[in-house]
């Protein structure tokens, strides 16, 4: 026993070094698994305030581009208005309430919450975006995040006033997607190399895919509202060893200058989850 103590005293520096290494590595590998780490919520409030200050400058420099994006989004939404469509046969009139609003709001499935981006990274293999809206403003874990042009990612950590979003430019991000034209469903991944391109996998080779095809969020996702743009096919890689395509997509969102995002809450998610769980337990 005395020898052990002597040994530790003699090599105390080395032992101390090892302890710190183990702490650091534990934090690193635990974070990858559960996307949360010691004091991350508290630290995010502090680092986030620095980010917010930096962002006020960056935001100003990109105002013009943000404005153009908003104008384009407005144009797209206005073109969907019912009054823009007229049937040539005027003797028939179709009347349809497009939005059912009642006092209980029981038909609403998706709720959009706007948020400002205050931190953004595209340079590592595990990219996160920080938004200035947190649990006090209604953001929860696993909510979907969309920009004005397309999908951004999912919320992974929430503090009181800020939230950290795992963008689709993260090696562990997986999103269910489908081809707009034919409807086949696959998975979106990122290979960690170029932040402009992502990969769509598991599309069977029986489908005719062309360059420029649109890829949207699928109807089976429990987070993302269906029909949101993810990307556009840039290259169809033909891998003879597989029955599935591996499609290279250009992202719909420009991750280099994303300024404002919408956090989307699926209000019927709990019901769907509990139903699916109950079904699994019966078997």
């Amino acid at each position: 026993m005395r020898n052990v103590i002597l040994f530790i005293r003699r090599y105390f520096n080395f032992v101390f070094f090892l302890i710190l290494q183990v702490i650091a590595l534990m934090m690193l590998f635990r974070y990858n698994k559960y996307h949360e780490a010691a004091f991350m919520g508290v630290a995010m409030e502090i680092t986030g305030s620095f980010d917010a200050r930096y962002n006020t400058i960056e935001n100003f420099l990109r105002l013009k581009k943000t404005n153009e994006q908003l104008a384009a989004e407005n144009e797209r939404l206005k073109n969907r208005l019912r009054q823009d469509f007229a049937a040539p046969d005027s003797s028939k009139q179709v009347v349809l309430d497009s939005i059912r609003i009642d006092s209980l709001q029981q038909y609403r499935k998706y709720l959009y919450l706007s948020a400002k981006v205050i931190g953004n990274s595209t340079s590592s293999q595990t990219n996160f975006i920080t938004i200035h809206r947190g649990s006090r403003q209604g953001v929860q874990r696993d909510m979907a995040v969309l920009s004005s042009t397309g999908v951004v990612g999912t919320v992974v950590t929430v503090s009181n006033n800020m939230a950290s979003v795992m963008s689709i430019l993260h090696r562990q991000s997986r999103i269910s997607a489908s081809l707009f034209r034919t409807g086949e469903t696959g998975t979106i991944e990122w290979d960690g190399k170029d932040p402009q391109f992502i990969t769509l996998k598991n599309i069977p080779k029986s489908v005719q895919v062309k360059k420029g095809d649109t890829v949207i969020t699928s109807k089976y996702s429990d987070k993302f509202p269906p029909g949101q743009f993810i990307g556009f096919v840039e290259e169809v890689a033909n891998d003879p060893s597989s029955n599935f395509y591996s499609l290279k997509l250009r992202t719909a969102t420009n991750f280099f200058n994303v300024q404002y995002v919408n956090v989307v809450a699926n209000l019927q998610k709990d019901e769907q989850e509990s139903l699916e769980k109950a079904t699994q337990q019966k078997q």
Binding site: A24, Y31, S124, T126
Partner: peptide, 11 residues
Amino acid sequence: YFLYTPGLHAA
């Protein structure tokens, strides 16, 4: 904590 990679640079 600034770069959201707890442990990496610390190690």
